[in-house]
Amino acid sequence: MNPALELTGLTKAFGLAQIIRGVSLEVAAGERHAIIGPNGAGKSTLFHLISGRIRPTSGEIRLDGRRIDGLEPFEIYRRGLARSFQITNVFPKLTVFENLRCATLWSLGYRYDFWRPVERLRDAREKTDRLMEEIGLGPRRNVLAGVLSYAEQRALEIGVTIAGGAKVILLDEPTAGMNAAESAHAVALIRKVAAGRTLIMVEHDMGIVFDLADRISVLVYGRIVASDTPERIRANAEVQEAYLGQAAGP
């Protein structure tokens, strides 16, 4: 069976600056994979490459065995890969309900339809209602996304990401900027939405990473220095030196 996501010799240079220096990685279907590393290691760039926001300089990206590097973001999405953003990136002047419904439409096959009323699409409404309950925003249905609290916006961000039923989900620092209670809530939500999907996430909170991930890759200066189970990563000397030592320090 093909891995859900496979990166081979991926590099990205901006001018002379090599940001990603040959990343190869396999993520199995159903796996929860965390990518950690110090600031500036290239974690966000890696996500941008996978999701099509920027194009790799060289190397290959395969989703379920098919090449996706060089495709537009919406084409990659249509093949089953969705992502969230580090800085909340929703539709501020639309309501919570409308944000989520817009995110379900493509997967339900409605595409660019300009001849049928959106209110009549029962499947879209029901799916949106379920989703809204799942992410805990039911009571905020008709509130504009722009006026939600920070934690609510982060939940909506995840909701918009999973709405289309993508098989592979990339979450970019889903708990950044949250307090402990909000983080715990977000982790429960991530655990829930990851069921039956392949999850790849960038996360700074080591507690969350070791709690959630089946496997962890450590990215340092554009290279993966280790990719293994949480226990082995914890014990890995190179990782200790490159990253965890810093994080655990005073």
Binding site: S51, E72, P73, N89, F91, E98, C102, Y110
Partner: peptide
């Protein structure tokens, strides 16, 4: 319509539309 709503989404955030 679906088109009309996605137009509003494009108005609000053209980048994110590409990821739905």
């Amino acid at each position: 319509t679906p088109f009309g709503r996605i137009s509003n989404a494009v108005r609000d955030n053209p980048e994110r539309v590409q990821y739905i």
